[in-house]
C-alpha cells in the first residue's frame, strides 16, 4: 500500500470546505497558521485582465520525506501506506522538520506541544476509504487512493491523465498528483513553463524503486 492523492485542481472554487472538514475531523488547533490543508491562490492581471489560479494543497507524504530524514528523535516517521506522521510524545519542537519541508506543511500545535501535520486521515481510511477533505469537497477536486493497486480509482485516473508535482526539483518524491487540465489555455495559465509533466508510465518505475528502498523503514 502506498497512499497518494490526485488533485483535479481546476475544479477548486476556494470554498474551504476541505480546510474546515479537516479541522473538524482531526481537531486541528485553530489559528491563522495552523493548517493541515489549505488552498493556495495565485492572482494577478494579464494586460489589465484579472486571473486567478487555485492550488489546493496539503502534506505531500513524500516517499523521500526530508522531514523524516532530519528528525533527531524519530518523532517524524512513516507508517504503513507511506503516510508521514508525527509522534507528539517524541517531538522536542526543534522545528527541523518545519525547516526541511519544502511545502510548509507543518506547524506547531500548542495544545500538544508538538509539530502537527496532515495524516491522510489514516484513522478513517478503513471505514470510509477516503479522507475527510475528499469526502466533503463540493466539486470533487481530490481523489485519494493506493498507488500500488492498479485497479484503484486513483491509478485508473493517473493512467488516463498527465500530471505534475509542486516543487518536484527538491527531490522529495511527493505524492500529490496535480492533474493537467485538458483545456490547453488553462493548463498554460496555471502551470509554470519549467514544470515537468509526467505520465503514469514514466512515473511508475521511479516511484516503485524509491518505495522499495524506503518502505522497509515504514512502521506498522
Amino acid at each position: 500500500m502506498n497512499y497518494a492523492m490526485a488533485l483535479n485542481y481546476q475544479n477548486c472554487i476556494n470554498c474551504k470546505a476541505c480546510e474546515t472538514a479537516c479541522k473538524e475531523e482531526n481537531g486541528v488547533q485553530l489559528g491563522a497558521h495552523k493548517q493541515r490543508i489549505w488552498v493556495g491562490a495565485v492572482e494577478g492581471t494579464i494586460f489589465g485582465k484579472p486571473y486567478m489560479n487555485l492550488y489546493p494543497s496539503q502534506c505531500n507524504h513524500c516517499i523521500n520525506a526530508p522531514c523524516v530524514n532530519v528528525c533527531p528523535t524519530h518523532a517524524s516517521h512513516v507508517v504503513a501506506g507511506g503516510i508521514v506522521k508525527v509522534d507528539p510524545s517524541m517531538c522536542i519542537l526543534c522545528k527541523g522538520c518545519m525547516e526541511a519541508c519544502p511545502y510548509d506543511a507543518r506547524f506547531i500545535d500548542d495544545t500538544m506541544v508538538a509539530v502537527d501535520k496532515c495524516t491522510f486521515c489514516d484513522h478513517r481510511i478503513e471505514e470510509y476509504g477516503t479522507t475527510a477533505c475528499q469526502a466533503t469537497c463540493p466539486t470533487k477536486v481530490r481523489l485519494f487512493g493506493d498507488l500500488d493497486d492498479e485497479e484503484s480509482d486513483l491509478v485508473q485516473l493517473l493512467k488516463t491523465k498527465r500530471f505534475f508535482f509542486q516543487k518536484e526539483k527538491s527531490g522529495t518524491l511527493p505524492k500529490l498528483f496535480y492533474i493537467v487540465p485538458d483545456d490547453e489555455h488553462y493548463a498554460k495559465q496555471s502551470i509554470s513553463h519549467d514544470t515537468i509533466i509526467h505520465t503514469w508510465d514514466d512515473f511508475k518505475p521511479v516511484y516503485n524503486y524509491a518505495r522499495d528502498l524506503r518502505s522497509i523503514e515504514w512502521k506498522r
Partner: peptide, 24 residues
C-alpha cells in the same frame, strides 16, 4: 463530534461545504 456528507441525497451529492462542516 463530526458532520459528514450523506451520499444518498441526489440534491447535495455527498458534499458538505465549509459552513456545513462547521455546524457543530
Amino acid at each position: 463530534v463530526k458532520l459528514d456528507p450523506n451520499p444518498y441525497f441526489p440534491k447535495s451529492k455527498n458534499m458538505l461545504c465549509a459552513r456545513g462542516a462547521a455546524g457543530i
